[in-house]
Amino acid sequence: MTDLQLNEDEYQLFCEVPDDGCAAGNGSLRSRIGWSRPRYGRARQGLLDKHLVIRGVGRGGTLRRAFAPSQSDPSSKTVSIPAPVTESSLYKPLLQTLGAEWSDYRGLSALAHEDTAFGGGRLTGGRWSRPDLVVVGFRRFELVPARFEVVTFEVKTVDNINVLAVYEALSHSRSATHSYTLFHVPDVLADTKRDEIGAVIAAASEHGIGVITFDDAADFETWDERQPAERLQSDPLRMNTFLQEQLSAEGQLNVASAIKSSNLDHG
Results as ranks from 00 to 15, higher is better:
L95H: 03
H172W: 08
F118T: 08
R174E: 11
I161P: 00
V155G: 09
V134N: 02
V158W: 13
R106C: 00
R127T: 09
G120K: 05
T152C: 13
A112H: 09
V163N: 07
D159A: 15
D104F: 11
Y167F: 12
R106N: 02
V163R: 13
A176C: 13
S179M: 04
A176L: 01
K156W: 07
E168D: 10
E101W: 05
A100Y: 02
L95W: 10
H113F: 03
R106L: 12
W128S: 04
V166R: 08
A146P: 10
L123G: 05
N162G: 12
S109Y: 12
T157N: 14
W102M: 06
Y105M: 10
S103F: 04
S103D: 04
D104S: 09
A117Q: 11
R147V: 13
V155C: 13
N162P: 02
V136Y: 07
T157C: 07
P145A: 11
S173W: 12
V134M: 09
R140D: 11
G99V: 03
F138Q: 02
Y167I: 04
V158N: 09
V163E: 15
A146M: 09
E149R: 13
A112Y: 12
D115R: 05
L170E: 14
L123Y: 10
D159Q: 12
Y105V: 06
L164E: 11
S173L: 11
G120I: 07
